[in-house]
Write a protein that binds this DNA or RNA. Structure first.
Lengths: 183, 183
DNA sequence: GTCTATATAATGATAGAC
DNA sequence: GTCTATCATTATATAGAC
């Protein structure tokens, strides 16, 4: 799906990829809707768990940005939302979990809004969350197609801004590198 | 395509929608690739012409934002980019025109970068363009699915920010309403 | 659980009458 | 330009042998 879009997901291709006969797909899933639903649930479970990190992070803004930016998944997510446009069963599941996810991000970002003076520009943490996910997703989708105009500069600007925020919150601390510690 | 996604575009459905027989699609287009290419070209022609306004606008930032935000087309564009992921002929056409479009937006935004102090945060006009198109597209795609968490607030924050920019560039002028004059 | 075989429907596409 | 007729291909899905 990441490589060729949701329309190319068929029982035959899945079977071929898994090295089994396509009919087995119907043994494991009750149909294509069920299959996509299961994929989405795996996706959200992974991310909801991952997103919990933002609550204990010293800089939730950076943490949220890093999660939003996980390239492969960001473009997969765009694909799933396109798919949801014409699969009712998926749409309901996606809308509720996206809203839950956004609320979670917002509450993780909330303390930073006042501390770092972000309230003035963004107003609410939801808006900050929307801006970051928006930028991350354009970058992901475009890079999948081979478009790169301004991408490096955008990532650099984001890194600069995050560093700036960090020095605001802890003026004595040194800059954190993008990759977190391995523990 | 806006309503049900690119996968639901078939010769039969197009024929039904147009009130003619599906075989006529092959009379007008050499195939599905050609059909999507034609759609994309119409799309870009419309927007490249429209985008020229940004060069003569008193506030190019607002103009670019308004163009990016045209709801229906923003979600259609997301759909087309998803489609491009597995249609080579489309991909080449899309990548080149997106890059051309971005360069155009950037050069329209360029003078505002220095005047309004945007260079400090965004660095280059391409980055500003990416941020705006990112936010606009998330809003569009999500709204199509019925998701609205933070959307109203995001639009309000954007309106506030644009007004702020405007008062910076012309301190004596009054706020412009979102809709431009009719002439 | 995995396979063969098959049902049924929809797809993109072509040939040719009018 | 629009139609009828038809093609090969692919899709989801089911039944039943092993």
């Amino acid at each position: 799906m990441r490589e060729e879009g949701y329309a190319s997901i068929t029982t035959r291709r899945l079977g071929a990829k898994a090295g089994v006969h396509p009919q087995l797909v119907h043994y494991y899933f009750s149909g294509m809707d069920d299959l996509f639903l299961e994929l989405w649930r795996r996706f959200t479970n992974h991310y909801l768990a991952r997103q919990a990190q933002a609550f204990v992070s010293p800089n939730p803004v950076r943490t949220v940005w890093e999660h939003d930016s996980e390239l492969q998944d960001a473009s997969l997510l765009a694909e799933l939302m396109a798919l949801a446009g014409h699969r009712e069963a998926l749409r309901d599941e996606i809308t509720t979990s996206v809203e839950r996810f956004r609320a979670m991000q917002a509450s993780a970002l909330s303390p930073a809004m006042d501390d770092l003076g972000l309230k003035e520009v963004f107003g609410s943490p939801e808006v900050l969350a929307l801006c970051m996910v928006g930028l991350a997703r354009v970058l992901a989708v475009e890079e999948r197609l081979g478009i790169s105009s301004g991408h490096a500069q955008a990532r650099a600007a984001m890194a600069r801004w995050l560093d700036q925020l960090e020095s605001k919150s802890r003026p004595d601390a040194k800059r954190r590198t993008p990759q977190a510690s391995k523990t």
